[in-house]
Amino acid sequence: MMKGKGMQSELVEIPFDGRRIQIEIQWLRPQRQERPLVVFLHEGLGSISMWRDYPAVLCEAGDFRGLVLSRYGYGRSTPRPAPEKWGVDFMHRQAREALPALFDTLEIGPGRKRGKPWLFGHSDGGSIALIHAASFPQAVDGITVLAPHILVEDLSVSSIRATREAYLQTDLRSKLARHHDDVDSAFWGWNDIWLDPAFRAFDLHPLLSQIQCPVLAVQGEDDEYGTMAQIEGIHRYAPQTVLLKLPRCGHSPHRDQPGPLTDAAVRFITAHTSYLK
């Protein structure tokens, strides 16, 4: 089992796509039952271990509980079979099918044992958080999204194409293999769909006005995968959104600017959790 801050990951089984799959999860500070539960949703090539110690750092700083997971196809979760190709709606399916199935299994949600969660999503995980909050407006207390995608920009496609070349030509594959049981499943599932011309149709604008919960949207000024249009678009359609634009920060604010991000996220979650006021 992968370890972090003295905690181990475990596998839970959920229904998805007409079958049973296993999802790798890790609990942080579960004994703090009265505190907010923050669910961490990783990036397109991420996993529990790819977060490193950031979820533990945030949860310690805010006295939060945490749930970190590896999505289907990532980490120690069930790998995506090689012939299975993700569709343009792959993030919608994660947000509307896989995540609710996991929450049902773990008794997370309104009126359930572990209560309503806060979602903390990075990149593709940020998009999944937005879709989930829009699709189930009463199911979450709020969301924090780091470098989310609400549309496909030329910059994103160019950088993802460069990542493909790095995977084929450099040691990127071996580095990622430390974090995934089936690294090719993780990489090609993500890379193939992002570079598919059909994926240009991906657009979350029609959903954003359905988000009712508080939103903290974070973008680095030097993000190589997206521009400020991503988070500014969220604010335009969900005006309760608070924007955090970080200087000297690329696509991973939790690695490039962990201090300012942690301070902002703790303040935001605390301020918008009614029983903490």
Rank of each mutant, 00 (worst) to 15 (best):
M2L: 13
K3T: 15
L11T: 06
V12F: 13
E13I: 07
R20V: 15
I21K: 10
I21V: 15
I23V: 15
E24H: 04
I25N: 05
Q26H: 05
R29F: 14
P30A: 08
Q31G: 12
Q31H: 12
R32Q: 13
R35F: 01
P36V: 01
F40N: 03
G44D: 02
L45Y: 14
S47Q: 05
D53S: 14
L58R: 00
C59Y: 08
E60V: 10
D63G: 15
R65A: 11
G66S: 09
L67Q: 09
S70H: 10
R71Q: 14
G73A: 10
P79R: 00
P79E: 00
R80A: 06
A82T: 14
P83Q: 13
D89T: 15
F90E: 01
A98E: 13
L99P: 11
L99C: 13
T105D: 03
L106S: 07
I108R: 06
P110T: 06
R112I: 04
R112T: 14
K113N: 11
K113L: 15
K113F: 13
K116W: 09
L119W: 00
F120I: 04
H122Y: 10
S123H: 05
D124P: 05
S127R: 07
L130Q: 07
L130C: 08
A134D: 11
F136Q: 12
F136K: 11
F136V: 15
D141P: 03
I143S: 04
I143V: 01
L146T: 00
I150Q: 05
V152I: 15
E153R: 03
D154W: 06
V157A: 14
S158H: 14
T163Y: 05
E165M: 08
A166L: 13
L168N: 12
D171I: 00
D171Q: 09
R173Q: 12
K175N: 12
K175W: 08
L176N: 05
R178M: 11
D182N: 10
V183E: 06
A186L: 06
I193K: 01
L195V: 08
P197Y: 10
A198W: 01
F199T: 03
R200A: 14
A201G: 09
F202P: 04
L204W: 09
Q212C: 13
P214L: 13
P214E: 12
P214I: 10
V218E: 04
Q219F: 01
Q219Y: 05
Y225K: 06
T227E: 04
T227C: 09
T227N: 12
M228N: 07
Q230V: 03
I231M: 08
E232C: 11
G233N: 04
I234Y: 02
Y237E: 08
P239L: 09
P239Q: 08
T241F: 04
V242R: 15
L243D: 01
K245I: 07
L246P: 11
P247Q: 07
P253F: 04
P253R: 03
R255T: 07
Q257N: 13
G259R: 12
P260F: 06
L261E: 03
L261D: 00
L261W: 03
D263N: 08
A264R: 11
I269P: 02
A271D: 14
A271S: 12
L276I: 01
